[in-house]
Simulated scan of single mutants.
Amino acid sequence: MKLELWRNATLVLNLDGLSILVDPMLGKKGSRGKMPMTESKLLNPLVELPFSREELHEKLKRIDAVAVTHLHPDHWDEDAVELLDKNIPIICSDVIADHIAEQGFTNIITVHDRLQWNNIEISTTRGRHGTGEIGEKMGIVNGFVFKKDNKTVYIAGDTIWYDEIALEIDQHQPQHIIVAGGAATFDVGDPIIMTSEDIIKVCTYAPESTVWVTHLEAVSHCREDRKYTRKQILENGLEKKCLILDDGEEVELYF
């Protein structure tokens, strides 16, 4: 298995020769505009994809399926809707399936709990995209677990650490966990994705798993960058099991 981060939460998971694109935000730098509910005047995404538009088109030709955790524009943007083949398999929860169908996609694989796809077991997982009123406004989100021959990867999606994440780890026993770091926060309310403190909790709770951190330095409401997050990891002695991916970086997943 291989994992490649494109930008933010957009990554490619290669399992048994099949490439699954997760949460595609494919627009050019600044194409999504200012982040709502913040005073920041920065235009999102903050950075370009780590390759040219021509390379993007070539990479999309090699994608076998797309997995979407939720429909916020830093995970599923207008460029993704425009650029992706409308017949490509779209893996998503039943909560967002109808909306994606309305956008013209014809091959939607709805995961209510779990299913088998090309000999890969795919499960949806729970998430909490913030707390209180902000968390309610952010809506329902989920993650995914991909399992092949007892090799298990858990993509937590946009969630903070809370008891359900521990339950998902207990149930699926993943060797690799991919979390959204950055402590994204609006001008009111608590962080809506994991802080460094949350990431440390994941590492502590799952000491046998390798934890990969994404969602850094690409959208303007994230408060923690790679330098800060790496410092927290080092101070907690977790640098061998908690790794921060750079945009464009591809890694081998060992089991």
Rank of each mutant, 00 (worst) to 15 (best):
K147W: 10
K148H: 03
D149F: 00
D149G: 01
N150D: 05
K151Y: 00
T152W: 03
T152N: 02
V153G: 02
V153E: 03
V153L: 01
V153R: 00
Y154V: 09
Y154Q: 04
Y154L: 13
I155Q: 08
A156T: 14
A156D: 03
A156Y: 00
G157Q: 03
D158G: 09
T159D: 06
T159P: 07
T159F: 05
T159S: 15
I160A: 01
W161K: 10
Y162H: 15
Y162M: 06
Y162F: 14
E164V: 14
E164C: 10
E164Y: 14
I165G: 02
I165K: 07
I165A: 09
I165N: 12
I165W: 03
I165E: 09
A166T: 14
L167C: 07
L167M: 11
L167K: 15
L167A: 13
E168C: 06
E168N: 13
E168S: 13
I169H: 13
I169R: 11
D170G: 04
D170I: 14
D170M: 06
Q171R: 15
Q171F: 09
Q171Y: 11
H172Q: 05
H172W: 11
Q173F: 03
Q173E: 13
Q173W: 01
Q173K: 15
Q173S: 14
Q173N: 15
P174Q: 00
P174F: 12
Q175E: 14
H176A: 15
H176W: 14
I177L: 10
I177E: 08
I178V: 15
I178E: 11
V179N: 12
V179I: 08
V179L: 07
V179A: 11
A180D: 11
A180W: 10
G181T: 05
G182F: 03
G182C: 12
A183T: 03
A183L: 05
A183Y: 11
A183N: 14
A183C: 12
A184H: 11
A184T: 07
A184C: 07
T185H: 05
T185S: 08
T185I: 00
F186C: 02
F186M: 08
D187G: 08
D187W: 02
V188W: 08
V188S: 13
V188L: 06
V188Q: 02
G189D: 00
D190G: 05
D190K: 14
P191N: 01
P191L: 02
P191D: 04
I192P: 00
I192T: 10
I192E: 02
I192Y: 04
I193Q: 06
I193P: 04
M194P: 07
M194W: 02
M194N: 09
T195S: 11
S196Q: 11
S196K: 08
